[in-house]
Design a binder for these strands. Structure first.
Lengths: 326, 326
DNA sequence: TTGTAAGCGTTATCAG
DNA sequence: CTGATAACGCTTACAA
C-alpha cells in the first residue's frame, strides 16, 4: 500500500496510522530493489576529467538541474584525466545500471566510446565531441570561437601570434589548434613551429610550462592564444615573471570564459561558452534518448561569443619594447 | 564462478573461455543485485551546497581519491543551497542505500542532521561543523585562521577594519564572525554595526552587495575581512568600481585560498585551508566508521595558515586619501 | 568439491 | 478490486 495503490477499503485513519508508523520507523523504499525489478534506475552517470577546472562545475550544475527537473539523479565521477580511472568508472556506472552516461571527459579513447556505441548504451558527449559524427554530442563551436579570438588579435594589429594548444590526444585540442592554424593561414600569417606549443593538459601549470618555449624564443610573439582559460592564465603568469606586461607587451586570449575570468590580472579576454546551458542541453538530450523520444539533432553546436576584456591590446608598446631591446 | 571462487576443477582453458564469452556478451555483474543481497553498496554519498564555489571541487577531489583508493564510489549531489533539495537528496541517498554520507552543505538544518544521528546513519561533516560537537567532522580551524588574518591587518597598522560575514544560518558564518569580533575586541578595536555586513551567500555577488554599506559609509574601513574568498573578491570588485585602489586605499583578506587566488587583481591575501586534505580525511573518517573501525578523534580540526599576497598593505595611503578627502 | 535453493525489497501479474 | 506470487541478479549457506 505504501506505493500508493488506491486503497478504498482502508479507513483513512488506518491508512494514516500505517504511514505514520512507516515514517517513524524510518522506512525508505529501496532504490536498489526497485531498480533491479524495473530495470530502470532514473539515474544518470557523468564522467568529468578534472572537477578542479572551473569549466566543469558550471556544466555539471546545468546537467544536475536539468536531470533533477526530470526526475533523474546524477552520479558524478572524476576521472582525473586518467584513462584507467575512466574505464574503471565506466564499468562501475554500467554495473549500477544507470540509465545513461554523460561524458565530459576530453581524452576519452575512441575505443571506449566505440564499446558504448556497440552496446547501444545511451550516452551523450558534452563539451568535447568524438570522431564519429554520429554520436550524440553538445559542444561549443570551436571553429567559430577560435576564429573570433584570432580575428580580434589580428584586428588589433598583431602579426606574430603564438598558439598554446591543448593535448592533441583530445578532440577539443585538435579542433582548436586546427581552427587557429586555419585562421592564421586565411590571414596569410605565420604559424610555424616556433609559434606553436602544445600543453600537456588543460591546466594552468601546463600552460605556464608550454609558454616557455614561445616567450623565450629569439622572436617571441606579441600575442598568444591559449586553448582554454587555465592555459591562458598560465601564459600570463609566465609573462609576468619574465617582466612582460600584459597586455602592454603581450596580449593573451583564452577559451571558455570561466566564472572568475574578469577578476584576474588583467581581466581575461576569452571566448565565452554557455557552459551551464551546455549541461542542460546535454542532459535533456540524454534523457530524451533514454526515454525513447525522437531526437532531431544528434549534434548540438553552441554559438560562442568573444568576451573582450583587459588582456588584449594593440601591439604598439610591444613593438616599441622589441625595438628598444634590439 | 565469475565471482572468483577457487575453481581448481576447471581447466584454465575452459575458465578462460567462459570469461571470454562473458566479456564478449558484455556481461556486467549487477551492483543493484549485489547491493540488495549484501546490504552494502560500497558507495558514499556527498552533499555539496554549490559546486561552482571553487573550494568544493578541491574537497571533492580529495574525497573522491580517498574513497576510490579504498574501493568506494561517490555519488555527488549539488544542493544549490536549497534546503528542499538537500532534504530530497538526503532521502535519495538513503534509498540508494549508500554506506555513508559526507555533508559539505553549510546550511544543513540541525533537524536534518539530527535525523541522521537518530537513525545512526553513518555521516561525516566536511568544511563546516554542526552544533553538536559529538558529530564526526573535519573542519578548518576558523578561529585560528580568522585571528591570523586580522592580526595581520592590525600589524600593518589598520585600526578601522570592516567585516563581511557569511550567512549567520551557517556554522561557518557564525564561527568566523564570532572569531573576528573576538579578535578585534582583544585588540580593543571597534567592531560596531557600521563595520559589519552580512552577505546572504558565500558568493562573489553577495560579497559585492554586502560591501556596499561599509564602503559607502561616512567613515569607511581601511581594511575588510571577507568570510571567504569569493566574498573578498566581491569586495575588491566593488572597491575598484568606487575608484578605491586595493590595497592602496583598501586592504582585503579572504578565507580558503581557492585555486586561482594568486592570479587575481590584486593577488588575494587569504587564509589557506588544506582543502584536498580535508576531503581525504573526511572520506577516511567516514569509511572507518562504516567499516566499524575504532575512531580516535571525532572532530578533526585542520591548521590554517595565512597566505600573504598583494591585496593587503599598510593603510598609509588610505589615511592620506581620507585626510585629503576630508 | 560442486550444485541447489533461499532471500535481499521491490513491482507486476494473475487468480480469486 | 484485492491479495498472493513470481521474478529481477546476486551471494551464501547447506546439502549432495
Amino acid at each position: 500500500m505504501l506505493n500508493g495503490r488506491a486503497e478504498l477499503s482502508l479507513l483513512p485513519e488506518t491508512r494514516e496510522r500505517v504511514i505514520a508508523a512507516a515514517t517513524r520507523l524510518g522506512y525508505r523504499p529501496s532504490a536498489l530493489a526497485r531498480g533491479l525489478r524495473l530495470r530502470r534506475t532514473f539515474t544518470l552517470g557523468m564522467l568529468v576529467p578534472d572537477i578542479t577546472n572551473p569549466v566543469f562545475p558550471s556544466i555539471i550544475k546545468g546537467v544536475e538541474g536539468a536531470a533533477h527537473a526530470r526526475g533523474y539523479h546524477l552520479i558524478l565521477c572524476n576521472t582525473d584525466d586518467s584513462f584507467e580511472r575512466e574505464a574503471s568508472y565506466l564499468r562501475v556506472l554500467k554495473e549500477w545500471r544507470v540509465d545513461g552516461i554523460l561524458i565530459a571527459s576530453s581524452s576519452t579513447a575512441d575505443s571506449t566510446i566505440a564499446e558504448l556505441r556497440r552496446e547501444k548504451f545511451p550516452f551523450v558527449l558534452v563539451n568535447s565531441a568524438s570522431r564519429a559524427s554520429d554520436d550524440l554530442a553538445v559542444v561549443p563551436d570551436n571553429r567559430q570561437g577560435v576564429s573570433a579570438a584570432l580575428d580580434h588579435l589580428i584586428e588589433l594589429g598583431h602579426r606574430r601570434i603564438g598558439l598554446i594548444a591543448a593535448p592533441q590526444t583530445t578532440m577539443t585540442g585538435q579542433e582548436r589548434l586546427l581552427a587557429a592554424r586555419a585562421t592564421l593561414r586565411r590571414h596569410h600569417l605565420a604559424h610555424e613551429d616556433a609559434l606553436v606549443a602544445v600543453a600537456d593538459s588543460f591546466s594552468e601549470a601546463s600552460g605556464y610550462s608550454a609558454a616557455r618555449r614561445l616567450l623565450l624564443d629569439a622572436e617571441p610573439p606579441t600575442a598568444i592564444f591559449g586553448a582554454n582559460d587555465l592555459i591562458a592564465l598560465g601564459v600570463i603568469r609566465l609573462a609576468r615573471e619574465l617582466g612582460l606586461a600584459v597586455p602592454g607587451d603581450l596580449s593573451v586570449v583564452g577559451f571558455n570564459d570561466i566564472p572568475q575570468a574578469e577578476l584576474f590580472d588583467p581581466p581575461l579576454t576569452t571566448v565565452h561558452v554557455p557552459q551551464e546551458e551546455m549541461g542542460i542541453m546535454a542532459a535533456a538530450l540524454l534523457i530524451d534518448q533514454v526515454e525513447g523520444r525522437h531526437i532531431e539533432r544528434r549534434r548540438v553546436v553552441l554559438e560562442t561569443e568573444l568576451a573582450l576584456r583587459g588582456s588584449t591590446a594593440t601591439p604598439a608598446r610591444a613593438a616599441t619594447t622589441a625595438m628598444r631591446t634590439a
